[in-house]
């Protein structure tokens, strides 16, 4: 409609919030998180806030959701660092770097603490208040899975791995000796089965749902835990500023609850799908992460310098001491 920058269209003190993520499955943690957001916001506001949740229905591509948020066609979205980067905010890409966080607790301390606050300021400032961070969600922890188990770094030598083929992620894997390969997510099942790639990397719920662990090149899972993933839970900042103070408080509270629900649901699914993979014949091994961390360090340092977030990286390192 014509009055998208006016938040209260009918002037009756009520607002409607369009919340969207890109996953179509109803039991995805994103959906759990947004439904929680809706529940709390609607209850706490005594009906002055209405939340409409879209599970993939207004965009299955994260880039489209970001564009919609900026334009005002969506009010609250979930998006990964890679796509945020394309809005011209290069600093957010730090969160897609491998071995940035050492454990789930390390990640929690960072995003819920000073690091998270600083990132929030950067995003808000660089987007001219188009994006305001309501909190940090997660899409689980990513591991290697492939045709053979990894026992040491040397085992990566010459192994083709489906991952990002550019940037810091690619640089890291190249340094381990692996060969980053590009193949679309939809074609990966077939690719693993037909030997197009030797291996891939992702979080349990994602690749187990796609049955990648049942293929010959997806059977061995090594818990490399190279990426404790971050997802940005964003609201349109300009609209947020126009809401009444009570409504703003309700939204922030609902966001807090939704963060809790989403993270719990992700952790639960991580366990569930790991068990499912093992039950269905996948073989899981753990590995000493230290050698990988040492490979990642210099790459991370250079990368942080390049995107101008050396102070943030330092803060993150300090938290782990």
């Amino acid at each position: 409609g014509c009055n998208t920058h006016q938040v209260d269209a009918d002037g009756d003190g009520k607002i409607k919030i369009i919340a969207a993520h890109n996953q179509t499955s109803p039991d995805n943690p994103y959906q759990t998180g947004l439904l929680k957001f809706k529940e709390v916001a609607e209850k706490e506001s005594n009906g002055t806030i209405e939340v409409e949740v879209h599970a993939g229905t207004i965009g299955t591509e994260e880039s489209q959701l970001v564009e919609k948020l900026q334009l005002g066609a969506a009010d609250v979205i979930v998006v990964s660092p890679g796509f945020m980067t394309q809005t011209g905010i290069k600093e957010v890409d730090l969160f897609s770097a491998p071995y940035l966080f050492n454990s789930y607790d390390h990640w929690l301390q960072a995003v819920d603490g000073e690091v998270g606050n600083k990132m929030e300021e950067i995003i808000n400032e660089k987007s001219n208040n188009s994006f305001k961070v309501l909190g940090y969600w997660t899409a689980g922890v990513r591991h290697y899975y492939g045709k053979k188990p990894i026992e040491s770094v040397d085992d990566f030598q010459g192994v083709s791995l489906r991952t990002q083929t550019s940037g810091v992620v690619s640089d890291f894997w190249t340094s381990t000796g692996a060969i980053p390969s590009s193949i679309s997510w939809g074609e990966l099942y077939q690719g693993l089965q037909q030997d197009v790639v030797d291996s891939s990397e992702n979080a349990y719920p994602f690749f187990v749902q796609q049955a990648h662990h049942t293929t010959s090149n997806g059977k061995y899972i090594t818990e490399t835990a190279h990426d404790y993933t971050t997802r940005f839970f964003l609201i349109n900042g300009e609209k947020f500023d126009q809401y009444s103070e009570e409504q703003q408080e309700v939204i922030l509270k609902a966001a807090k609850e939704s963060i809790k629900a989403e993270r719990e649901s992700t952790l639960l699914q991580d366990e569930e799908y790991k068990k499912k993979a093992i039950d269905e014949g996948a073989i899981v091994n753990e590995i000493d992460r230290q050698p990988f961390i040492e490979i990642a360090r210099p790459i991370l340092n250079d990368f942080a310098k390049e995107i101008d977030v050396e102070d943030l990286l330092k803060d993150i390192y300090e938290l782990d001491k």
Binding site: G1, N3, T4, D10, E61, Q64, K68, A73
Partner: peptide, 19 residues
Amino acid sequence: GIFGMPYTPEATVPMKMVN
């Protein structure tokens, strides 16, 4: 249709065409 929807900007139309 989008003009009739209070919460969706019309610019969605050209955007969606390219998308």
